[in-house]
Every structure is written in C-alpha cells, then in structure tokens.
Amino acid sequence: MTQPFLIGDSMTGGYGGADILHNCTIAVEKGEIAVIVGPNGAGKSTAMKAVFGMLKLREGSVRLQGEDITGLTPQARVRKGMGFVPQTSNIFPSMSVEENLEMGAFIRRDEIRATMEQVYELFPILRDKRRQAAGELSGGQRQQVAVGRALMTKPSVLMLDEPTAGVSPIVMDELFDRIIEIARTGISILMVEQNARQALNIADKGYVLVQGENRYTDTGQALLADPEVRKSFLGG
C-alpha cells in the first residue's frame, strides 16, 4: 500500500484530561477532498486539530508525504506546507483584506503578488474589497478572507474547520464550489463539516467519527448511499 499524502495514523489523545480520540485515523490523498463528519461531540474538530499539531498525541503519528511530523508545532507544520483555517476568529478584523492576505504570507520571503492574484481570481469579491477592514465584511466574505489567508503560504494541504458554520445556504454552496476549485489545483483538502450531506457530496473520501473513533470510512458517494449512515447521521 502506498503512503497517503497526509495521514493522522491511529491517533489517541486529548487536551490533557481523558482521551477524546481513540485510535482514530484520518488521511487525504493529493488533490482530493476528505471530509470528517459525525454527531456533536464526536471529536471531529479534535481529530483535525490533532493532525495539525494543536493537541498532544499519546499514541499514533502524523505523516506528511511519508515524513513523520508528529513532534512539530503547528507553526512548523505551516512551514511544511499545511494551511489551517480555524472555525472562529480566523481573520484579523481591523486590518484590510489585502493586509490579511499579506499576513497569511508572513513566513514567505519571496514575491507574494502572484499568489495574491490567484486568491483574487478565486474570490473576486475580495479584490473589490481589498482596502476594506476584514471585520466589516459579511460572514461569507469573511470566510473567503480566512481561506484566502491560509492559501497565501501556497500550502499543499488546506485544513478547514467547519468553513460553512453560520453562513447562508447559498453562500455555503458557493464556498463548496470554491473548495472544489482549490482541490483541482492539486491542493489536498481536509475539512470538518456540520452539513454532512452537502459535504459528502463533494468529498472524495468521508470519515464518520463517533466518540473519537472511526465508525465508517468510504468514498463520499458510498457513504451517502449507505442506508446505515443515512439513517444514523444524515437524517434518513
């Protein structure tokens, strides 16, 4: 079996107290979209944070392109090519859209103009609002800023923690379209989603977590078709 592009392998751990994750495995292939779904409190966000190094694993490992990165800090993982978009507080509200993007590219020392152009291509509305303070934008636009900020490091993997939380259904569809577009450029996407049905629709791979364990793992379409999954997690 070949190595997946990014894998959190048999992860066990929590935030100091009791374990939240139990032998949980999450992986994503190059240019694919992997989605983590599950009921509230299933440890979805925790699993993703574990992959990003925001909590200490007791067991298991995280490997990027075959390299073991379990011991790296989140900042070091950013340098390795991982981008992360937190669920909340994911922008610099008093700074302009353009400055938000610049800050995203803070670790880069080369010319960032081209990357910024790509982000503007992807989210044209941001180009129009680039001088405006990000905190003054609508919810959907702020999410675009947040994703754009994470793209500025030219990551090979983009991790999104509930990118559609609190946005309207139309904006949600729009965001999902953009995420597919990002994946087509060869960037792997790992995301946690509350809107399981829509997310699995665009997912190459889906992980259903329950109480910190892998319950079902399959392609997005297969999970959508699975009557068990439909009954328990997708509301019939």
């Binding site: 989140p74 900042q75 950013v78 340098r79 800050m103 803070f106 670790i107 900020r149």
Partner: peptide
C-alpha cells in the same frame, strides 16, 4: 494585537 492565535498560525 487583532488576533493573537491567528498571528501565531501565520508564523509571527
């Protein structure tokens, strides 16, 4: 000053 955690994530 705006967002300490995100600044850390951005490598500041």
């Amino acid at each position: 000053s705006d967002n300490e955690d995100l600044a850390l994530l951005s490598g500041i």
